[in-house]
Amino acid sequence: SGVLCCSLPSPRNVHFESINMKNVLHWSPPEGTGHGVLYKVKYLVYGVGKWIRKPECRNINRTWCDLSSETSDYEDQYYASVKAFLNGMCSDWIETTRFNPLTDTKIDPPMVSVSSTEKSISVILTAPEKWKRSPEGESISLLQVYPGLQYNVSVLNKKTKKRWWFSISNNTLVVPRLEPGTPYCVSAQIRVTTPLLHSALSKEYCIVTLKDKTA
């Protein structure tokens, strides 16, 4: 009669992976199942009365589902759940823990642009943007989401291997009293004090200070 009995093992490790609030649900296949497993996904806004199916993730064989659109309001919190199907059998629904986009996302490093004079380096930092539905969509910098956002900036003299660290709130830094004609490398990291978040360190951006014209 087509009634599915839920004796299939459940999907495992159902969790959100979030970067700059691009929130993607991931899971692992049920134990001991090979190919051919299909999945369904539903989600719920915490505190609101009903689970909502995600049509684009119905009867899929991949083990991820992008729920960024459905979880874009970071003033809310969410649950998501996955069910597996194989050969007429199905599993129980397996849920994530409660997902808070504001505290549970990872932040990319800032973009770094560097320019130099003879004895100084200027650094301009740009925080990543929050995920948006489409390229034409409104750009929201993570600076607007996390007003307490700060930058840790490292400046390395490649000749002497001397390194300085700066912690700044605004997005520009001028490092004075440097050596002319010398290579310096800059990398930067984002830090949010509360909620406690920090990005990885960016790659190094290197530049050589101009030669001293009077020398």
Binding site: Y46, G47, Y79
Partner: peptide, 12 residues
């Protein structure tokens, strides 16, 4: 209980 919140619904 997923469908009830103390602080965030109905009023955020």
């Amino acid at each position: 209980v997923r469908t009830v919140s103390i602080l965030s619904h109905p009023h955020s």
